[in-house]
Design a protein around this nucleic acid. Structure first.
Length: 804
RNA sequence: GGGGAUGUGGUGGAACUGGUAGACACGCUUGGCUUAGAACCAAGUGCCGCAAGGCGUGGGGGUUCGACUCCCUCCAUCCCUACCA
């Protein structure tokens, strides 16, 4: 009777062993290093499928690299500050700290149970003072470098709960808890000048090995555009309204100016004009999220003010438009309805002039968005858009009414959050004047909450903020993106309390492979890149980029949608780990879809993964390695198995190395297993068959080890039994090139591109021999009968195509 | 609104550089084993058709001897959109 495969037993024992022998502890040595990092999780309570997928990919690659003699560093930590902890605290009457730490303990056990090989000696929790102390110090250094400033900025305000809401807490313009109509409110906030690095963030994308789509997203987000600043004089005053336009060639089509509802002029007018003040009130009722603003109906109101067109000197009306963002550009736009979709809609709605100034052969109906030839533009008529843009910009510059300008879409990073569960911003106000806390007073610790208390905002915690009657602490905390922008570097020195980054950081950095969800393609990755560059300029880290290579994994879906509690389509990975074991879950995750694509969860496919491991188990568990001298000759069947084994190894190696294509790697291992002839497996097999089977078993176990490390290591040890051999992890097998050579192949014969037959051909045949051979197929010769052959195409080793 | 992806059998997916579409697996059907079931083993399985053959990679068009792959266009779904992480 074959012993049964009970994954729970062997997995637990091996995990214990790995921890006891510090298998995954990493120290600098003279091997090539490989820093493999998976995005650390928010400790929400338990692992979800996205985590399992992310971390399995990272672990598979780490184990593979380790087998290839790299010094692998794979740490793990916790992005522990954030909104959900506060929500849970209110709902469950536990402190955010307690809730978070309990979640971490549970999730850490889950990670261990998945067999993930982390160096736990470098574990980080961003909510610990020992971590955020350094974040406060980095902020201080940014401040000293002139990268930090304070500015008024917009937030979603819930007037009932008297609190600032995150965008996701605003549903259809209402607060999620109170249901009250939210308001856009302007408050003082801290900003970091990420725009100072805009150009470098754009250019150094060329240095990294990232997916093109992520690079494109970042490029578009930074949004470098060339255009012109144009000044429109306000009638009867000496003041100007300055607009930025990427299309100065369309300036003769400008028929209105639109200013932001938060623009100074709008605010001034609202004081006197009840209609305008009503309009501004209405504008405040749309959440500040970009998607909401863009979807909201375009609304406007005439200010009654006129502006003077800088080139025609005609008067054009100034409107307030709810679609104009104060934070972007100058907060004023020039409306060219003939050549801009949004302006066209706005002008049509409010019966403003629509003037065509560009003609284009391909487009007839206004608005014509693309470039073309100028018309109705006085002396610029008949110029191309490009030439006209240059000429008009030059002429405006001469008149001192404008200038050419490079503009970025990227805005400075607002890091203030009005919340409790975050890193306190280390600032003290003395008589209202801010100053950063001295280094020796860091960290500014987050105050503990009274027992069973809901989180009290720092602004209501007098014990915290009041140092004396005229000295107060800042009560905002940092955006949690701050916490996650530099953790990759801190991991290298996580156990060092004396300095933020020690000499290990220059050994391990940059991260060789960073793995995480595609949803982080812009914000998190951009902020981290900015941090790295700023830290580099302060001589704290080396190199220009934090993440050399990036792997963006797709989402785990159920019924075609992202798993979420609100949709009720979540699947808890723990129940599958309990039922099938970690190896099956890992195998399933890797087999079901390529890493970059989204993965549709399927219950029954998990069974398939489990079945495959059982087959491997049943094949190997009772077999023992025997020292057999390599036979001098092999039968055809034996040769075929050896060739299959080594072509599989070659494919799997390539899939791991160059493509991260684990699903196809697993498929070929399955194919190899199916290929082993029955009689090789029987007890009465010959010596040479046994030799070949041994070779195949060894290679299968090695190939399987990164993906299913428990079963493969267990079987490896069982297979070698009393004869001590190298550990399964000590090396990746080598392809025997001699075994790959083939002399024959299956020739596909096509007529006009349609397959008409197949025949075994020699690889060395020339085209005429191939043609002759192809014509021996009855179906082919029948189809070619009485037909004029126009052309014959032969692709060596693949197909021959007769064109008739 | 803007930006980025994806679309192939009943299902997940494969086809890597323009060269046999559907590897591998799930499911299903039939048979074996079994008192029965589970498990396991064997065979079959894109669609239409008795067959010959024809059709087939979201829809339409194009380039090519040859297109899942390249180009144009339309449609659907998903992700991000600066305070979810």
């Amino acid at each position: 009777m074959i012993p049964e495969y009970i994954p729970q037993e062997i997995e637990k024992a091996l995990q214990k062993k790995w921890l006891e022998e510090d298998r995954f502890l990493a120290k600098p040595d003279n091997r090539e290093k490989y820093y493999c990092l998976s995005m650390f999780p928010y400790p929400s309570g338990k692992l979800h499928m996205g985590h399992v997928r992310n971390y399995t990919i990272g672990d598979v690659i780490s184990r593979y690299k380790r087998m290839n003699n790299f010094n692998v560093f794979q740490p793990m930590g916790w992005d522990a500050f954030g909104l959900p902890a506060e929500n849970a605290a209110i709902a469950n009457k536990v402190s955010p700290k307690e809730w978070t730490n309990e979640n971490i303990e549970h999730m850490k056990k889950q990670l261990v149970a998945l067999g993930l090989g982390y160096d736990w000696s470098k574990e980080l929790r961003t909510c610990e003072p020992s971590y955020y102390k350094w974040e406060q110090l980095i902020f201080k250094k940014f401040y000293e470098k002139g990268l930090v400033y304070r500015k008024k900025s917009l937030v979603n305000w819930d007037p009932v709960d008297e609190t600032v809401l995150a965008n996701e807490q605003v549903i259809d313009g209402k607060g999620w808890r109170s249901g009250a109509q939210i308001e856009i409110k302007e408050i003082d906030q801290w900003f970091i000048k990420i725009t100072e690095y805009a150009e470098e963030l754009l250019n150094s994308l060329e240095e990294v090995d990232w997916p093109e789509n992520v690079k494109t997203m970042q490029k578009n987000w930074i949004g470098k555009s060339h255009g012109a600043e144009i000044k429109f004089k306000i009638k009867d005053t000496k003041e100007f309204l300055t607009v930025f336009s990427t299309r100065p060639d369309t300036i003769f089509g400008a028929s209105f100016i639109a200013i932001s509802p938060n623009h100074e002029i709008a605010l001034d007018l609202a004081k006197k004009d009840i209609q305008i003040s009503d309009f501004l009130q209405k504008c405040k009722e749309v959440s500040s999220a970009e998607a909401d603003m863009a979807k909201a109906e375009k609304l406007g109101i005439d200010t009654g003010i006129s502006a003077i067109h800088p080139l025609t000197n005609k008067e054009i009306p100034v409107w307030i438009g709810n679609f104009v963002l104060l934070d972007y550009g100058t907060g004023v736009v020039m409306g060219v309805p003939g050549h801009d979709q949004r302006d066209f809609e706005f002008a049509s709605k409010y019966s403003l002039n629509i003037i065509q100034v560009i003609s284009n052969d391909n487009e007839e109906d206004l608005p014509i968005i693309s470039e073309g030839t100028l018309i109705n533009s006085e002396k610029y008529n008949n110029l191309s858009s490009k030439d006209a843009s240059i000429k008009i910009t030059n002429d405006l510059t001469d008149k001192d009414l404008g200038c050419g300008l490079v503009q970025y879409r990227l805005r400075d990073w607002g890091v203030s959050r009005q919340r409790y569960w975050g890193c306190p911003i280390p600032v003290i106000y003395e008589n209202g004047t801010p100053r950063i806390v001295d280094e020796n007073e860091l960290p500014v610790e987050l105050p503990e909450l009274p027992e069973n208390s809901a989180p009290i905002p720092l602004s209501q915690n007098k014990d915290f903020y009041e140092i004396s009657s005229d000295i107060q602490r800042e009560t905002d905390t940092f955006d949690t993106f701050m916490d996650s922008s530099w953790y990759y570097a801190r991991f290298t020195s996580a156990d060092n309390n004396e300095s933020v980054f020690d000499k290990n950081s220059s050994y391990w950095l940059p991260v060789d492979l960073y793995i995480g969800g595609i949803e982080h393609a812009i914000l998190h990755l951009l902020y981290s890149r900015f941090f790295h560059k700023a830290l580099r300029d302060m001589d704290m880290v080396e190199g220009n980029e934090p993440f050399k290579k990036l792997l963006t994994q797709g989402m785990v879906l159920k019924d075609g949608a992202k798993m979420s509690k609100s949709k009720g389509n979540t699947v808890d990975p723990q129940s599958y780990i309990d039922k099938y074991g970690a190896d099956t879950v890992r195998l399933y995750m890797m087999f079901t879809a390529p890493p970059e694509q989204s993965l549709e969860w399927s219950e029954s496919s998990v069974e398939g993964a489990s079945r495959f491991l059982k087959k491997i188990w049943n094949l190997i568990i009772e077999r023992r390695f025997e020292e057999i001298k390599e036979p001098s000759s092999f039968s055809e069947e034996e040769k075929a198995l050896r060739r299959k084994t080594h072509t599989t190894l070659k494919k799997v190696t390539n899939d791991f190395e160059a493509r991260f294509s684990f699903n196809t790697a697993i498929a070929s291992i399955m194919e190899l297993l199916n290929f082993i002839p029955e009689k090789f497996k029987s007890q009465e097999t010959s010596e040479s068959e046994k030799f070949c089977l041994n070779e195949t078993i060894i290679i299968i176990l090695k190939m399987l080890n990164p993906i299913a490390p428990h079963i493969s290591e267990y079987l490896w040890n069982a297979f070698y039994d009393q004869n001590p051999q190298e550990g399964i992890e000590s090396s990746w097998p080598e392809v025997n090139q001699d075994l790959l050579e083939i002399s024959e192949f299956e020739l596909v014969v096509q007529i006009n591109g349609k397959v008409r037959g197949k025949v075994i051909a020699s690889i060395d045949s020339d085209q005429s021999e191939i043609e002759e051979l192809a014509c021996t197929i009855e179906n082919v010769s029948n189809n070619l009968k009485d037909k004029e052959i126009k052309k014959i195409i032969y692709i060596k080793g693949k197909i021959v195509n007769f064109v008739i």
